[in-house]
Design a protein around this nucleic acid. Sequence first.
RNA 1: GCCCCUGUAGUUAAAUGGUAUAACGUAUCCAUGGUAAGGAUGAAUUUCCAGUUCAAUUCUGGGUGGGGGCACCA
Length: 638
Amino acid sequence: MPNITLPDGKKIKFDKKVSGIEISEKISKSLSKQALVMSVDGNLKDLSFIIENDSKVKIFTSKDAEGLETIRHDTAHILAMAVQELFPGTQVTIGPVIENGFYYDFARKDPFTENDLKKIENKMKEIVERDELTRFEVWDRDKAIEHFKKIGENYKAEIIKDIPHGEKISIYFHGKWHDLCRGPHLLSTAKIGKFFKLTKVAGAYWRGDSNNEMLQRIYGTSWASQKELDDYLKRIEEAEKRDHRKLGKEMDLFHFREESPGAVFWHNKGWALFQKLVSYMRVKQENAEYKEINTPEILDRSLWEKSGHWEKFGENMYTSTTPDEKVFAIKPMNCPGCVQVYNQGLKSYRDLPLKMSEFGKVHRYEPSGALHGLLRVRAFTQDDAHIFCTEDQITEECLSVTNLILEIYKDLGFENVILKYSDRPEVRVGEDSVWDKSETALLKAIKESKLEYSINKGEGAFYGPKIEFVLTDAIGRDWQCGTLQVDLNLPGRLGATYVDKDGGKKVPVMLHRALFGSLERFIGILIEHYSGKLPFWISPLQTMIIPVSDEFNDYSKSVNSKIKRAGISSDVDLKSHNLNYKIREHSLSKLPILLICGKKEVDTNSVTIRRLDSNKQENMQLEKFIKEFSILNKAPSL
RNA sequence: GCCCCUGUAGUUAAAUGGUAUAACGUAUCCAUGGUAAGGAUGAAUUUCCAGUUCAAUUCUGGGUGGGGGCACCA
């Protein structure tokens, strides 16, 4: 006779075997109405599961992550039911819960259209109303395979074949419709409610492998209440408003065009932002003892063959044949060029660590489907550096890179940073013993940094293991930006050496590191993080001077030139629009500071400040304005 | 690269088997204004290449770009 222990420690004694729903009824009527699933000794179970022995039981409602996940899982099943009712002959494959929703992959000849989504949604609602009861059976493997094959569900049969022998094959029924599934599920289809929406159709490879056939995936979202669904849809809308592609156009920062897919045409304001970030990093790197260099964009094929890029990275490289038939590659990475700078002249152990930075523009032939605004381009500028050092210096140098990156992210408004560590990939150069050494040294640095980190097996660069720096933006999205790679391979391949204490030549270790990764991508992230309202010090155009009428144009022009001389970017709006019009226009373009100049200002040699998102008027002496805003015109850490 | 959707003034959109409409922007003129759109007039457009058709921006096929996913992100 089971003794049930609840999360608060309370025990309930039952005189017979008991189901989850019976337990919830015993606790309270309202709980039994809201109950969705339960855990029995830590394992999630259907509420209909019968408990025979003493157990710890926790009942979940839609307020718990477990409850909401089960709702989504059930919604995915109901989606599959609806699709098969509407489109007989469609095969089901898998339909997992994902963040904020679920998807289901189907195999069907004809594509689903946006119109079908609406139809399917209605059918789903109908199924919810039918309130089909959930039932659960355990089948024999061979019977299950045979059954699914017989009804034409070849993908399901294949999935079952891959389930290890000895594991139970559980089949869930919702009415007559059934699916292979681990569960748990709600008691009936009505329990999911109607707070779901199918969001998009997309292609997806069977088992995520691009060699396999493509299935049709339907994405959806599902919530416990109409309000939560509405809030979610609202959040999506808000995120779309900060899309850097849209803001980039509105703010006149950059554009793309057909002649060069995946390459940015920077407008004046966008380029100003780009250059501000570069100047800022120059100062930070100067302070950290980096020496800036610059190397050719086009280099002979032989160098890329030596470095290993030709073989391991060739598919992503642009090449160019000259009129005299020589083959060059447009650099996809800066490292070989940098090693050649290192190689020019003799280096001593006393020169190490030698940190060479380069704002290098690289070109990579990315798959067309990967391109996405500034976030994924084919031509971009890396804030790259290569640190040549001895093996003993690796850990210390990695730590100093990590600190530099954290400082820079903080200046730009990103406080939350986590690390991702990736070790040796399948396609790589170098001996395993060398990889052992690099991986150990890098891991040691990670541990000493005391930052949170995760491990990505097999995702390192072809020449060495790496850390990636992942930051979190204003609406909680993660972005992978900086990177740090240990490389014991390239320097040797390209013949880099230094003269050690004993007079013998040794091969240095090279660390590759990028702070933002790609300037282009980072600018995209910055725009989205700030919704285009960039901090004053990196604003591409910081102040706009607006004369109240033509009469004050001269005064406005003189204010403009004084502000510019102080290093603050500024412009005068002399167009023949009225004041209100100009204020609206420049506010919409997210200009941080508007300076209004009229009679009052001329008489007192002052300006009236209007800050973005405020309608307060603040009159200030011009000299004072320049002094105060010059202080704000620097990164917080400088 | 793969699947689906998509391409109309600078921008955002509307319409159509008989070469297109609006708003904003732009240009000219009027208005000279004090904190989120003052008024008038004008210029400007169907992504490219084939095909069907008397006639294609519209239908069909292909190229190419863009979007959403998948795969990729060295």
